[in-house]
Amino acid sequence: MDKQRKHLIRLGAGVAAGLGAAALAWAGTAANAATDAPESDFEAQIIGGQPAEEGQYPWLVGLGSPGEGTPWERQFCGGSVIAADVVLTAAHCVEDASAGDLVVFSGSVDLESDAVVETAVADLHVADSFNDPVAMANDWALLKLAEPVDVEPIALGTEAAAYDALETAGWGNTGSEYPVVAEWVEVPFVSDADCESAYPGEVDAASMLCAGDLANGGVDSCQGDSGGPIMTPAGGEQVLVGIVSWGYGCAEAGNPGVYAEIAGFAGAIDEVLAGWE
């Protein structure tokens, strides 16, 4: 099975105009990775999650294209506000885009809410080391917004650590639809060793982390969630530890979700932010 990036344009909704052939090519081949997956005994449902409440993840934003249509119709990736005018997302969401091709939707987990604020992107930085040393390594990008958003930023996790569980959220495929209201799910942390065993030769432990139920599957991020956050669990101040990146299918046993691990490139992020000040 081919490796699936998790940022595909949703079926039946708007096309992310201006993002180029690379984004569109994925839509024809893997718009729902679950259709290619081996049959299993769980129902792909994010997958296995539930709707997020307003204010649960104030830093969660949708990334989309400008133009006509609702934010839900134009959203194709997620992102996290890490400063009043900066969003962190996945490199593969924007590698073929320019700043003018992008907008950010903030202010509500409901992409059809009147509370959603659409903000233009003024500048864009894709990681210089994206796809090095292996495909999808260093899968991060920064968006400089045209104006600040009234959103609580999330702190970055700058030290690699092992966790019992993490939380991820977004507007991606639930197995049956692309929801209007963002969904979230708790996913078990997967060690680097187990991650590398699941994907031999494809994991860069320095810039990737894995999460998911290895034994049973059933919980995961999926297409449309790319660029969104994976965080420490609720309770106290949450910390952003990774970015939804790739995986084989969605929520399959033995195939955990792979996330860009912020601790591996926190210094590079700081350098870009310093240059934007």
Rank of each mutant, 00 (worst) to 15 (best):
G264L: 09
G228T: 10
S197D: 10
Y178R: 01
V181R: 05
V244P: 07
E68N: 03
A206W: 07
C210W: 05
W171P: 04
G49Y: 00
D150W: 11
D213K: 13
G48H: 11
T89G: 04
D96F: 02
N216D: 12
P179Y: 11
D204T: 07
V239N: 01
L145S: 01
V121Q: 06
A268Q: 06
H7C: 04
L156S: 04
D164K: 10
L142M: 07
A17S: 13
D36H: 11
E152D: 11
F189D: 15
A263L: 07
G170E: 03
D132A: 06
S80Y: 03
E277V: 05
S176R: 10
Y57N: 05
D194S: 06
A21F: 11
G249A: 11
S106E: 03
A22L: 13
E39H: 03
D132F: 09
G175F: 15
S226G: 14
M136D: 09
G264R: 03
A31D: 14
A137G: 08
G78C: 13
K144Q: 13
G49L: 01
N131S: 13
V109Y: 00
F105G: 00
P153A: 01
A52P: 08
C93P: 06
V203A: 08
A13S: 15
A23T: 07
E202I: 08
F105L: 00
V86P: 08
G78K: 04
V15C: 04
A23I: 06
L214M: 15
C93H: 05
G100S: 10
M136V: 05
D220F: 10
P51C: 10
V180G: 00
G275S: 14
A165S: 13
A30W: 01
Q223A: 11
M208G: 06
P148L: 01
A91K: 03
G247A: 11
S176E: 15
L124V: 10
K3G: 04
L19N: 07
I46P: 12
G224C: 01
L11V: 13
F189K: 09
E196A: 08
V87T: 06
G201L: 10
V81I: 12
L88W: 01
A21C: 05
D213A: 14
G62D: 06
G100V: 05
A253Y: 02
T174L: 07
D164T: 11
A266S: 06
G242K: 09
I154R: 14
E237S: 08
W276D: 14
D85Q: 01
S108H: 00
Y248V: 13
G201I: 02
Y163W: 13
D96I: 02
L11Q: 11
A260M: 09
A260F: 07
A52Y: 09
E95P: 05
Y248C: 02
V109N: 03
V94R: 05
D225P: 01
E54F: 00
A17C: 12
P133D: 02
N173V: 06
A115S: 07
G12W: 01
A99K: 04
G14W: 00
G20L: 10
C195D: 00
W140L: 04
C222I: 02
D220S: 15
E53V: 02
G212Y: 07
L24R: 02
Y259H: 14
E68F: 12
E196R: 12
G12M: 04
S191H: 05
A22Q: 12
R10Q: 07
P233I: 03
Q56H: 02
L166M: 10
S176A: 12
V104C: 09
V126T: 08
G12E: 03
D41R: 15
Q223E: 14
